[in-house]
Write a protein that binds this DNA or RNA. Structure first.
Length: 1106
RNA sequence: GGGCGCAUAGCUCAGUUGGCUAGAGCGCGGCUGUCACAUAGCCGAGGUCACUGGUUCGAGUCCAGUUGCGCCCACCA
């Protein structure tokens, strides 16, 4: 160290100021962060990778939604990513952690809309108040706000992202990637427009994905409606079918009805209003009535539409006709009539049935799809329903009102058979909470069923290109692709990437237009898809699609856009599903597709250097939505491989989900979330991180009991819990201060549920968890261990530098480990072992094991034993000081990935300490600004692992513990020096082996408060068993109490007898000696002999007290 | 309906290929104001490893089944 540094730190005044007794994170974290940023410590250099100088290690952040602040789940996710990134950076990899956020289409739009409504800025329909551009501007402002919040949270946590490269899924670079990807899929025929049933949110007036819906049980009814049976096809001369006629046809039960009256069949439905769109009635082919109805039709009341009775095995037989127990036990059989109304435009299953029976339905003169609803879910005759008949009375009603009116109309005509209450789950929209309407709509699809997409994704798994950790999640991934459906990518929103397709539905092209389009297509600026029409087709109007669609490749190609718009093409109004841009994350963040020159070189430098990335670190619910799609897209787009390209990441690590103390998901509505910034404020970022790592086990879920911080007293306490109406266990809305019952506070649940409001007298109590004390205490422990170590190293180091000049100090020959004392060899061996354990744990994503290994090493081995053991000797031993410095530095380095701040602060001081190097220990210096974050991971050679020293120290440790136990029983004051009497030499061959030498004796003296060690017997002494022999202690107290000594020994004998019985039993089992491995048997014998010897010794002693 | 996970000390969790006299942290009880750290140290109490069977010399661990809790996917007239 330089002399001025040494002077600064050695002056006691500054030591106390700079090293207070407690580690205070807020004193250091902002400053350390600034140092990292100033040094550009997290900026990755692709050139080092491309030149072969360093291997890449890459993680792409799962971009958090800009809808809200980050919660503890994010904190866990990002802590793990940062730990990995920092670890590999220290291992010498060129580490890139790419940060960014996601625009989260529907979620963000809904949040902003809600905000505007809450503030009163928006009252009526959105589209009346704002133009598209105006509203997008509002969202943009909101996005900027939350992106900044999120970035701040990540940075406060110490996330070592390459912040200069931060991306947003809707920024220009990502938009370019989205456009290019869409273009290529469109060109290759993998994007198509389809009329399909989607989950329609009538409030937001948009299609929503399945995962944007939730199921909720509601009390509804089954309505039993009668549909009259008729003969003829055309409604105007449809002839009623009489019961007599049905009876002649052999219809079961027809004779029970008045013969000359018109016959009917009964359908059961929960949504009677949809009858307006019925285009068939289905019956099971196994229904005994089916044969009699062949060729008959029903006429829909009021509408007058005549629709066929068709046979489809999807229909459940009513209980009475069930053919077996399985059918009988089908819950639907209880409610079923055997007739299913088929409404293809308003029910997904009916849609399938409609497709299967297209011909029959159309032969009745009807379309398969009759859409009776407007986008706002009112009954409408403007969206595909023309044969309204007298049903026009329903037009214009919202669906709820229409339901009542339809039921009333059936009742009035005597066609309502029954209403039975029925509780069933109904799909609701996450965002608007409205009931989802299955709705027929034009949508864009990606044909992921194409083998170049789905199959390529599974091949990546089967060929071992992608590996899941834990492995079980591979199954989820695989099965998803086996059953994949085409991916609907259009959303009727304003916030998102516009669908880059222009359509032409009316008018006529001129030959000039067509020639121009052809030119644009041939130069790669537009695509008309696989079915790009020939000139002849267009001119003769035989274009396959009525809608002729064009994708424009580049957003800024205004010339092409102007040209096609002039021809009458209009851009699609929809935006793309958020996951479309997320799926491109591994490409877009790394600069794909790049300039022409970059493309010629195989892609931009970043892309070539860092894709495939190393690890994707995410939660399990996203395997299908995101992981799968990234694999498909990367393999399809990267290079010209079309499904054979590289995977986007090699490892997928799925971490646990954090739940609250009741095993419930943390959510806003339950008010059980914990803000990472609150934890950073009270415990520090390292505590947050270490604790999260410590709980990151391989299970699916981990629990984090949530406590409250009393806003009056700052006390942390577990809240009083209640059951809410949905059955969740939640903190009571109002809580009482544990210290002062007069003071109250409201909880997050109270506010979220609207049951309580924060006021000046009754402030909001923030959530925390006492679990984070673990990390805070550990950081403090490290801090204090460092204080002690530095006081030893600096005090003595100064003396050394006075005696020797710097040159000779730095030229010191490395210390040979063999020359070290046992305790030092033990310490180095422990460090070597545990650092390797920690490393192995981290590389296999066992974060909890990683944290535990280093916790035990630092706290148990280093602080509890090593520091205590060397106190008397370290001042006089240069070699021991070297071991102390190296051990501490290794621990600090190894902990850096999980506790970056406190370790950086410690390292700042530690690195100035000069001691002799130790053979076999390599700690590579920092690459950037002397910062630990770019220094090397501690490497300990095999020679440092010393089983003999570990064994020897363990024996000392056991002996010391045994002595301490006696001391505690006798209440010996800590400072009182006692006398240890070694056992009879004959009894204790073991004494010579490990605990018999002077070094061991010295350790026992230090650690167990022993003054004298003697082989002589004492008159008044207390015996204890160790290593199969009887050892004795004297000078514990002035007099030994015979009664309590008898109690103690009696208990010890009982314990030993118990284990003797166990061991005896094992050995006397005839099979044991024969079949168990020899070393096991021998070990059991040794244990038995030892226990017996100890028991006998204890008995002897007991007799003396008798 | 298909897939997956969990059940071990009062609480939160470890426990790798069966060898265990079942561990850790917190909490609990006792002692300690000590000089790195009271966010600490030392000592201690606390467990029929959900249940039932099976395999084995030996089961917390493997197999079969049961019960309870949870998650994902599909479906929901």
């Amino acid at each position: 160290m330089s002399s001025n540094e040494s002077n600064t730190v050695s002056s006691s005044a500054s030591f106390a100021t700079e090293f207070p007794k407690q580690y205070r994170p807020s004193d250091h974290e902002p400053r350390v962060w600034e140092q990292w940023v100033a040094a550009k410590a997290f900026h990755a250099d692709p050139a080092r990778v491309l030149s072969g100088e360093a291997k890449p290690y890459t993680i792409l952040i799962p971009p958090p939604n800009v809808t809200d602040r980050l919660h503890l789940g994010h904190a866990l996710n990002n802590t793990l990513q940062d730990s990995l990134t920092r670890f590999y950076r220290m291992k010498g990899f060129e580490a890139l952690w790419m940060p960014g956020t996601d625009h989260a289409g529907i979620a963000t739009q809904a949040v902003v809309e809600k905000r505007l409504r809450a503030s009163g800025e928006l009252t009526g329909p959105l589209r009346e108040k704002f133009s598209r551009d105006q509203f997008v501007e509002k969202i943009q402002a909101f996005k900027d706000e939350y992106e900044a919040v999120i970035t701040g949270q990540l940075q406060k946590m110490g996330s070592s992202c390459d912040w200069a490269r931060q991306r947003f899924t809707m920024d220009e670079q990502c938009a370019t990637a989205v456009r290019e990807a869409f273009f290529r899929l469109f060109r290759d025929g993998l994007i198509y427009r389809g009329k399909r049933l989607v989950n329609w949110d009538p409030v937001l007036q948009t299609a929503v994905a399945d995962d944007e819906c939730f199921d909720e049980e509601i009390d509804g009814n089954f309505y039993y409606l009668r549909y009259p049976l008729v003969h003829a096809i055309k409604s105007q001369d449809s002839q009623p079918v009489t019961w007599n006629e049905l009876a002649r046809r052999g219809y079961l039960g027809a004779e029970q009805h008045p013969g000359e009256e018109p016959a009917w069949i009964t359908v059961a439905t929960t949504r009677p209003e949809t009858y307006l769109g019925d285009t068939a009635v289905a019956i099971s082919p196994h229904d005994p009535r089916a044969k009699a109805l062949k060729g008959l039709f029903v006429e829909l009341p009021m509408v007058g539409r005549v629709i066929p009775v068709i046979e489809d095995s999807y229909v459940v037989l009513p209980e009475a006709f069930a053919r077996n127990d399985e059918e009988k036990n089908d819950p639907k059989a209880k409610m079923a009539t055997g007739f299913l109304k088929v409404t293809p435009a308003h029910d997904p299953n009916d849609y399938e049935i409609g497709q299967r029976h297209k011909a029959e339905i159309e032969s009745a003169g009807n379309q398969v799809l009759v859409n009776i609803l407007a986008p706002d879910a009112t009954i409408s005759d403007k969206h595909g329903w023309s044969d309204v008949g007298s049903a026009h009375v329903f037009v214009g009603y919202p669906r709820e009102r229409a339901r009542k009116e339809v039921v009333a109309a059936f009742k009035a005509k005597g066609l309502l058979e029954a209403i039975k209450p029925h509780r069933h789950s109904v799909k609701h929209s996450d965002r608007s909470k409205a009931i989802i309407e299955p709705y027929l709509s034009d949508q864009w699809y990606v044909k992921v069923k194409d083998p170049r997409l789905a199959k390529a994704a599974n091949e990546a798994l089967h060929e071992g290109k992608v590996t899941f950790h834990p492995a079980r999640y591979a199954k989820t991934y695989e099965q998803w692709h086996d059953n994949i459906r085409d991916w609907c990518i259009s959303r009727q929103l304003w916030w998102g990437h516009r669908v880059p397709v222009w359509s032409f539905s009316t008018g006529v092209h001129t030959l000039n237009d067509l020639t121009q389009l052809r030119e644009l297509e041939e130069t790669g600026r537009i695509s008309q898809g696989l079915r790009s029409p020939s000139l002849e087709e267009v001119v003769t109007s035989t274009v396959p699609d009525k809608l002729h669609s064009i994708c424009v490749r580049v957003e800024s190609d205004h010339e092409a856009i102007r040209a096609i718009e002039a021809m009458g093409f209009v851009q699609d109004l929809d935006v793309l599903d958020t996951w479309f841009s997320s799926a491109l994350w591994p490409l877009s963040t790394l600069g794909w597709p790049g300039t022409d020159a970059e493309q010629a070189a195989g892609g931009p430098d970043l892309l070539r250097a860092f894709n495939p990335t190393s690890t994707l670190c995410t939660a399990r619910e996203i395997i299908t939505l995101w992981v799968s799609r990234m694999v498909m897209f990367n393999r399809y787009f990267f290079g010209e491989a079309m499904g054979k390209g590289p995977v986007p990441f090699r490892d997928v690590f799925i971490h646990a989900v954090i739940q609250d103390g009741q095993g419930q998901k943390m959510s806003k509505s339950l008010g059980n979330g914990v803000d990472p910034l609150d934890i950073i404020a009270t415990h520090g970022a390292d505590a947050l991180r270490f604790t999260l790592c410590h709980m990151a086990t391989e299970t699916q879920d981990v629990r984090m009991p949530v406590d409250l911080i009393c806003p009056h007293t700052s006390e942390v306490f577990p809240p009083k819990m209640i059951q809410n109406k949905d059955g969740y266990t939640v903190p009571a809305p109002i809580q009482t201060s544990p210290k002062d019952p007069a003071k109250k506070m409201v909880t997050g649940y109270g506010v979220a549920s609207g049951e309580a409001k924060a006021t000046a007298d009754m402030p909001l109590a923030r959530n925390t968890s006492s679990k984070f004390d673990l990390g805070r205490n550990f950081a403090n422990k490290l801090w204090n261990a460092t204080r002690f170590a530095l006081s030893m190293l600096e005090a003595n180091g100064k003396q050394e530098s006075n005696q020797t000049n710097k040159q000779s100090a730095s030229a010191t020959t490395p210390i040979d480990v063999k020359s070290l004392a046992m305790v030092d060899r033990w310490m180095l061996s422990r460090v070597a072992t545990q650092v390797r354990t920690a490393e192995a744990a981290l590389t296999s994503y066992q974060f909890a094991d990683h944290a535990t290994a280093l916790y035990d090493l630092a706290w148990r081995d280093f602080c509890d034993w090593y520091l205590e053991a060397i106190k008397p000797t370290v001042g006089a031993s240069t070699a021991q000081r070297a071991v102390l410095a190296h051990a501490l530095e290794a621990i600090v380095r190894a902990l850096h990935p999980t506790m970056p701040y406190v370790t950086e602060v410690i390292f700042e001081r530690l690195r100035t300490i000069k001691t002799a190097p130790i053979q076999g220990v390599t700690m590579i210096a920092s690459r950037k600004a002397n910062l630990l974050c770019s220094a090397g991971w501690p490497e300990f050679g095999d020679a440092l692992i010393d089983p003999a020293a570990e064994l020897a120290f363990d024996r000392v440790r056991t002996l010391v513990t045994a002595i301490r136990e006696v001391r505690a029983q006798y209440n010996v004051p800590p400072k009182r020096q006692i006398t240890l009497h070694l056992p009879d030499v004959k009894q204790a061959a073991a004494v010579e082996d490990g605990v018999g030498d002077d070094a061991a004796h010295a350790l026992v003296r230090t650690l167990a408060g022993v003054g004298t060690i003697t082989t002589q017997a004492a008159k008044i002494s207390v015996a204890f068993a160790f290593d199969g022999a009887e050892w004795r202690l004297s000078d514990l107290t002035d007099a030994v109490d015979a009664a309590s000594e008898r109690t103690r020994l009696t208990k010890a004998i009982a314990d030993l007898d118990k284990s003797i019985a166990t061991l005896d039993g094992r050995l006397s089992n005839p099979g044991y000696a024969d079949k168990a491995p020899a070393h096991m048997v021998q070990q059991t014998r040794d244990q038995l002999n030892k226990a017996k010897a100890e028991r006998d010794a204890a008995k002897n002693t007991l007799e003396q007290f008798a």
